[in-house]
Amino acid sequence: MTEYYCVMTFHSTHHSLIFEKELKKRGFKIKLMPVPRQVSSSCGTAAKIPCNLRDDIISICNEENIEVDEVHKIEQKNTKNWFERFLSS
């Protein structure tokens, strides 16, 4: 089974921190993470966001002057092996 999540990248770490603050204030469930390797060879900070809220989140960024670089859709392979599945079932 494949699942998807979206990753938003920024031009600076500072903007990713403002992003986290502003969106948490508005009750969004987002999480900061390192930029996924398949997206870029840079080593900045990105945010994991739900894909369906993408447009809402981008408009909040515009409102708050948070410079968004790109939004990527990432395929999340279900890599759990039988043991992990057993544990989480």
């Binding site: 770490t13 390192p34 840079s42 080593c43």
Partner: peptide, 23 residues
């Protein structure tokens, strides 16, 4: 290192900033 982006500063920064232990 080009593939893995290993960085001695990034290792500590990511733990403190975003609680990520990868590096």
């Amino acid at each position: 290192l080009q593939r893995t982006r290993l960085c001695t500063a990034g290792g500590f920064r990511d733990i403190i900033l975003i609680k990520d232990f990868h590096l």
